[in-house]
Amino acid sequence: MKAALQAAWRRAVQTARLCCGVPDYDGYVQHLRTHHPERRVPSYAEFFRERQAARYRGGGGRCC
């Protein structure tokens, strides 16, 4: 029960962050470790700033 609630909460946070253009940080870290072990893993704050800037770099736009 507790595990299920935790999973649901994690998913809700992931959705909320993705709605603001911030993808899953843990997923990114895992991706880096598996595929690019030579690259430095950014902290969440660095990751967040990079994604925040990327969201408004143009393209897409917002819906009416």
């Binding site: 998913r11 709605c19 993808p23 899953d24 991706h31 819906c63 009416c64």
Partner: peptide, 27 residues
């Protein structure tokens, strides 16, 4: 093309939430 940033295979309900938030506006 999974790069962990723009191309990320994501849970379908998470994508649904994201997509709906992106299309729903004042219109």
């Amino acid at each position: 093309r999974n790069d962990g940033l723009d191309y990320v295979p994501t849970d379908k309900w998470v994508v649904f939430g994201h997509h709906f938030a992106a299309i729903a506006g004042a219109g």
